[in-house]
């Protein structure tokens, strides 16, 4: 494996970056700041493309649509906003959560947004119609929802109530797994067979989706009280996690060893996002984001 180095560093001037997200093809990225704004960047060229303002409180998460024409963001102001990328105008505002909306994702066709909130609910918003109420609200969780992953037919929700819940639309089933620790972030491997769960016991746990058995545990990073995120690299060979110590840990998926450690800075690295197809990683710490990778992208 070639050496991963910092390719670019962007000072976002957004106070604290709550989350950083690649867009669907990995050429742009979104940063959600605690200054209530979302910024669209080209991280490879360190270019600021657009700023989206309209939230009434910290923006906690954002996602770009599959055609990169819309952005959906959620905020501590209990609402989610659908943005038009080019005009920068909010198209629709979804109010329905009773508390801060912590995470939001589009579905595969970006026809629906799924948001999770501190109010223990997961809400489904129809983007296609003009309905302002959630189509479906999942109230299974007994505590805050920390993260959501949406695949073509599944919704994975992680909650502070120590449960991971997988809602399978095809099977019309809800599978809940008790993990025993607060799950700060859950992602799925790219083959869709495993959950990668960041727990607040300073571990990342790899679970088999079908059986619910634990496959591996990754230790080395420090969690503290942070909502650390994790990511899986493009080849499903590495698990990447931020750390409260300001480093980024690369774990080998099979051997669970730390294969690489990137030092971002002194402040904790909470949010990170991996390029969907290439070896690029975005990490956010305080008000700066860094793009890591093996080589510069040819543009």
């Amino acid at each position: 494996m070639s050496e991963i180095s910092v390719l670019s560093t962007i000072k976002c001037n957004q106070q604290t970056i709550r989350s950083v997200r690649f867009n669907v093809d990995g050429t742009y990225c979104l940063t959600c700041g605690s200054d209530k704004k979302i910024k669209l960047w080209n991280p490879h060229r360190e270019l600021l493309l657009k700023t989206y303002g309209g939230h009434a409180n910290e923006v906690l998460d954002a996602a770009g649509s599959c055609d990169s024409s819309h952005i959906i963001s959620c905020s501590a102001d209990k609402s989610a906003i659908l943005w038009d990328v080019t005009t920068g105008q909010p198209i629709r505002r979804y109010r329905g959560h009773a508390s801060s909306v912590t995470c939001i994702k589009f579905n595969e066709e970006s026809s629906m947004a799924v948001s999770g909130s501190i109010d223990n609910t997961v809400a489904f918003w129809d983007i296609m119609s003009r309905r302002n109420e959630p189509i479906l609200v999942l109230k299974d969780a007994k505590d805050s929802i920390t993260s959501i992953q949406v695949t073509d037919h599944e919704i994975l929700t992680c909650s502070v109530d120590n449960h991971v819940r997988l809602y399978d639309i095809r099977m019309a089933k809800m599978i809940s797994d008790y993990i025993g620790h607060i799950i700060t972030y859950g992602s799925m491997t790219r083959d869709g067979q495993c959950y990668v769960l960041s727990c607040n016991d300073n571990t990342i746990k790899l679970f088999d989706k079908d059986s619910g058995e634990i496959l591996n545990t990754f230790k080395g990073h420090e969690c503290r009280d942070l909502r650390l995120e994790n990511a899986v690299n493009e080849k499903d060979s590495l698990i990447i996690s931020g750390s409260a110590t300001g480093e980024v840990f690369y774990y080998d998926l099979i051997s669970s060893n730390v294969s690489q450690k990137l030092v971002h800075g002194p402040k904790p690295v909470v949010s990170l996002s991996h390029h969907p197809t290439d070896c690029y990683l975005l990490t956010a710490s305080e008000n700066e984001i860094k793009l890591w990778g093996t080589k510069k992208m040819e543009l």
Binding site: E108, D126, M128, L136, D152, H153, I169, M174, D177
Partner: peptide, 20 residues
């Protein structure tokens, strides 16, 4: 031991949007 399944009925519109 830790797994638990329950039937869950997704909304018809959700199914439609997810192409399921």
């Amino acid at each position: 031991m830790t797994r638990r399944e329950a039937p869950w009925r997704p909304d018809s519109l959700v199914c439609k949007r997810f192409n399921v």
